[in-house]
């Protein structure tokens, strides 16, 4: 491979020297032919990769629109049947509620903490980072084992109407999204001069809440939005904790439904995947608009 995949140092301009047969053997001519082989290699690799990643998704679309019987026409029957599963609908609502709760709660915890640590406790910056990234190292399946007794207490302490409600999953989800929220907010904080902003606000008589919510916060709104969207995407797709602690959410219900009505569950899976894509595409558009405004 190493000989056929040369480095792209050749510039597009060097193609101009290609024609002469003397120059073809010169280093610049060599570079031009190397460049062409590189472009071919890139096209082939990226096409194959796209196929590998698109085919399973398209197969789901195909699967969910199959008619019953051999050579049956395409049908949206499975898609229509989604509405006939009330448990599924309520699970979708639960997951949406969970994603809102998790985004709001994790931002409420992390935005003030991270700004505060930057400004007043820079010494523990590394410690906070280490703790926040820990859930990447501790597998969720391991965390669940330890969460079982913790959740026995959560259930015991939660007030009547919340007992047994899936919404208590929020506590675990805040931990699961911690690394992603941390990274998003960290990128936002790096992009602005927190110290100067805070000093300016303080010297004009602002209190700490004003500094956080009216000065620094709005300056990192893109990062906050980014973190919130990641929370939504992660929570909507969460299965491990919910299924092992026995709380119903979208993925839990989807998995159960998979055994009863495969076409409907695949249709919902397609819908879920499209939802995630739409979220991320929307986010990238907002990010770009913001970026160009600042530039």
């Amino acid at each position: 491979m190493s000989q056929t995949t040369p480095y792209p140092a050749a510039s597009a301009g060097s193609i101009a020297v290609l024609s002469g047969d003397v120059t073809a053997r010169s280093p610049r001519g060599l570079r031009a032919s190397r460049n062409r082989r590189l472009q071919l290699f890139r096209v082939v690799v990226l096409l194959l990769a796209s196929a590998f990643f698109l085919v399973p998704f398209l197969a789901m679309v195909e699967f969910s629109t199959r008619g019953t019987g051999v050579d049956a026409a395409r049908t949206l029957d499975a898609w229509r049947r989604i509405a006939t599963y009330p448990n599924l609908i309520s699970a979708i609502i639960t997951s949406l509620e969970l994603s809102v709760l998790t985004s709001v709660a994790s931002l409420a915890l992390m935005v003030p903490t991270m700004i505060w640590v930057r400004l007043r406790l820079p010494r523990i910056n590394r410690l906070v980072e280490f703790v926040c990234l820990l859930p990447l190292t501790i597998p969720a399946i391991v965390l669940v084992v330890g969460l079982v007794p913790v959740y026995a207490w959560v259930n015991y302490l939660s007030p009547g109407p919340l007992k047994g409600s899936s919404l208590v999953l929020t506590f675990a989800y805040i931990v699961l999204v911690l690394p992603y929220v941390y990274r998003a907010l960290d990128a936002g904080l790096r992009a602005i001069d927190v110290q100067t902003l805070a000093e300016a606000a303080r010297s004009l008589g602002a209190g700490w809440p004003t500094v956080m919510f009216r000065v620094v916060g709005p300056n990192m709104s893109a990062a906050i939005l980014n973190a919130a969207v990641l929370c939504v995407a992660l929570v909507m797709g969460e299965f491990t904790v919910a299924s092992l602690l026995n709380y119903v959410n979208l993925q839990y219900e989807l998995n159960n439904l998979g055994q009863a009505d495969a076409s409907v569950s695949v249709a919902v899976a397609v819908g879920f995947q499209l939802f995630v894509v739409a979220l991320l595409v929307g986010l990238s558009f907002i990010g770009r608009r913001r970026g160009s405004k600042e530039a």
Binding site: L109, W116, V128, C132, V145, G146, V150, L178
Partner: peptide
């Protein structure tokens, strides 16, 4: 100043470090 970081450490203590310790000691 430390008080400002307290909610964070209490939270991760309860829902990240405690479960991990439960596994290790359990």
């Amino acid at each position: 100043s430390w008080l400002g970081a307290l909610p964070f450490f209490v939270y991760v203590g309860l829902f990240l470090l405690l479960p991990t310790l439960v596994v290790v000691f359990g």
